[in-house]
Design a protein around this nucleic acid. Structure first.
Lengths: 195, 195
DNA sequence: AAAACAGGTTAACATAGGTTAATAAATAAA
DNA sequence: TTTATTTATTAACCTATGTTAACCTGTTTT
């Protein structure tokens, strides 16, 4: 029962979770470690797990026709990551998930996910709120992508996720923002010139 | 108990819903009609409802600093629309929702939403799957926004939502795609030249 | 019917960001 | 430490999309 999981749950549902519920839930998960650059999921596979990052960093991405990667989501310790399309639908994944650093993760498979949601109302509630929040955040991100230029998007990103800027390669942040690494480099240069 | 609601629910949960459950749920909703160009929600208000469109069309949008509108979501009959950020959090809306045609809607307020989810497991399940699907679709849309040019995004949009192309003003489709109306007009011209 | 308005098109020009390619800096491997 | 490999920077040039502004069509309003 890692403290980071408890605080993730309590922050999400905005109330305390009992030790008993947390223990019950933990029993459905198992812990594993992976090296840096390990693929937790590759396009075309079935995504059987959702991952909670206890230590390290990972990200999901899609590869376009040209072969370019586009980062979808970054996850440091205390965040969840998965390909929910594949996980929920049972269809082949269109995204990849790869570690950026050695990670220690908690893994929850589909069967246990269902069991946990059915047997622990707090956990059911937790996952519902988790995805509600994710949806709302994603909608906002898309709205910003469609309404602001790359410079503003980077400013907002750097302000919102200062730790990501430290630990995630710049070319991946660029792709997350929908621009090329050279452009982000240019933006950062102009930015430091201003200040 | 409108047939369009039943089929929306059954398509989403991929199974039949009993008349009894549907009736119970319907009792939590009420029906209203609004004129064309009516604001169902304005930025700064609290979003107290989620709307199911029975007839007509509506859309949500955000206004940027320059005063430009950016369409977030379109809803024709058989679709839901709301500002889930405001609805879930109880905070002030950052989006607007406006009708594009006269509409007949079913409205479900927050209190009844909670009651329906607690008392009708099928409905709880329905809303969970609805938002899961919405999240997955949104993630895909963002991935495409970041990886494809405007022409491809429009092609995909027109193929996926041919009825939207018919009924929704082109300048709103442009803003949904993250471009200016003039650019969409240019894209459509080149497109017809090709064929 | 005239006027006003909303939506769409076109064209000339401007610009943010992409492309290519070379180099440098940082990190990992030998 | 030396050599690879990965990541970041820079610059010259290119292109898709934005900007401005004029015009057109169809639809409300008066």
């Amino acid at each position: 029962m890692p403290a980071s999981l408890r605080s993730n749950i309590e922050r999400t549902i905005q109330q305390k979770i009992t030790d008993s519920d947390l223990e019950k839930f933990s029993a459905f998960t198992f812990e594993r470690t992976f090296d840096k650059k390990h693929h937790l999921l590759e396009e075309g596979q079935l995504c059987n797990y959702i991952y909670f990052i206890q230590e390290g960093a990972a990200y999901s991405y899609i590869v376009d026709q040209k072969g370019d990667k586009h980062a979808i989501q970054f996850s440091l310790e205390g965040y969840w990551i998965s390909d929910l399309f594949s996980f929920y639908s049972g269809k082949e994944a269109i995204y990849n998930i790869e570690t950026l650093e050695p990670v220690k993760v908690l893994m929850l498979n589909k069967e246990n996910f269902e069991k946990a949601c059915c047997s622990i109302p707090m956990i059911d509630r937790f996952f519902r709120i988790l995805i509600q929040n994710a949806y709302v955040a994603l909608q906002y991100r898309l709205a910003k992508t469609n309404s602001e230029d790359a410079e503003h998007r980077y400013e907002e990103f750097a302000k919102k996720y200062p730790d990501f800027v430290q630990r995630i390669p710049q070319y991946l942040i660029a792709s997350y923002l929908g621009i090329k690494p050279q452009s982000l480099s240019r933006i950062r240069k102009e930015r430091t010139n201003k200040k």
